[in-house]
């Protein structure tokens, strides 16, 4: 998206230095020997008597995209909540860099470099882009009563980070609500990357978008992957998943319906498995019985 020259420039002045390690991951990208960034093994979650998730395993490596596919109610949301630290798993293992971990809050997930971009994007539509970008982690100058926002740094960093994601914003002062859905997704991804995410969890990033906007977002996903991040892409759209995924995890009614590497499965097979082959056959049978309405079938 951006020239190598751009990269050098931005790496030099890593702003605010909260977790300036996001660029150092390229080394692990293809190192099969290093433990995966994030690994879930036989994870389960129960809400009272409801079994929301059972025996789900998933691996996220640096520079790879792991797609979690599932229909509504398959357990995708529960899985995201466990990964992002909102809920604690009841059974199984949650490992970060190969080490067994129990997250107590979304904050502790963030501290480990696991950032989640939710469907609503956690953005304030009326606020300018640059204020949204740093919301909750604002860099400041001075101390005591003179402590103030470092507005210049905030603006320039926002602009640079978005440029690096391939978005050339005319004005970082415009309310973020005026951006398109795809652009807002991209800002959310850029924000997560800037704040040191190593694992990026994306919750249905293309769900509400048109084909073109979805393409914009998938490019950002690829860009984040190329920067060395591990990406978890949660979606119910096998077409989008197939474009970027290195591995697939299929969920169905809270359990694993399959796990495949990218080369092992075709799009058709993926679609069939996801929809559930027999259910799809039943559906097509059912639909066929209804007489297809002609062009003037309506009264």
């Amino acid at each position: 998206m951006t020239s190598p020259h751009d990269h050098d420039e931005h790496d030099g002045d890593q702003p605010d230095g909260r977790r300036p390690d996001d660029d150092g991951q390229d080394g692990d990208a293809d190192g099969g020997a290093t433990p995966p960034l994030l690994e879930l093994e036989s994870v389960a979650k129960h809400y009272g008597s409801i079994r929301a998730l059972e025996g789900v395993s998933l691996t996220v490596r640096a520079g790879e995209v792991t797609c979690v596919l599932g229909d509504n109610g398959a357990g995708k949301s529960t899985l995201i909540k466990i990964i992002s630290g909102l809920h604690r798993h009841d059974a199984g293992y949650y490992r970060v860099d190969g080490e067994e971990t129990t997250l107590s809050s979304p904050r502790s997930a963030l501290d480990l470099g696991i950032a989640t971009v939710y469907q609503d994007l956690a953005m304030i539509p009326l606020m300018p882009v640059w204020r949204n970008f740093f919301l909750g982690s604002e860099p400041t100058l001075g101390r005591g009563p003179l402590r103030r926002l470092d507005v210049r740094l905030m603006r320039s960093t926002t602009r640079e980070r978005l440029l690096r994601m391939g978005i050339d914003l005319r004005d970082v002062d415009q309310p973020i609500g005026t951006l398109s859905g795809g652009e807002r997704q991209s800002v959310a991804i850029a924000r997560a990357v800037h704040f040191g995410a190593r694992v990026l969890v994306l919750d249905e990033p293309t769900a509400a978008l048109g084909v073109k906007q979805a393409g914009v977002v998938l490019r950002r996903v690829a860009a984040a992957r190329d920067e060395g991040l591990g990406v978890v892409l949660v979606t119910h759209n096998p077409h989008h998943a197939h474009l970027v995924a290195d591995r697939f995890v299929l969920l169905k009614r809270g359990t694993m319906a399959g796990a495949h590497a990218a080369g092992e499965i075709t799009l058709d097979e993926l679609t069939r498995q996801m929809a559930g082959g027999s259910e799809l056959a039943e559906l097509s049978h059912e639909l066929r019985r209804t007489a297809p309405p002609g062009p003037d079938a309506h009264e």
Binding site: P106, Y118, D120, L121, A122, M123, I124, P125, L126, M127, R131, L135, G136, S137
Partner: peptide
């Protein structure tokens, strides 16, 4: 501005 413009989003970040 954030808590007025979107409370849940503000809490999430």
């Amino acid at each position: 501005f954030a808590v007025g413009g979107g409370r849940d989003a503000a809490r999430a970040v």
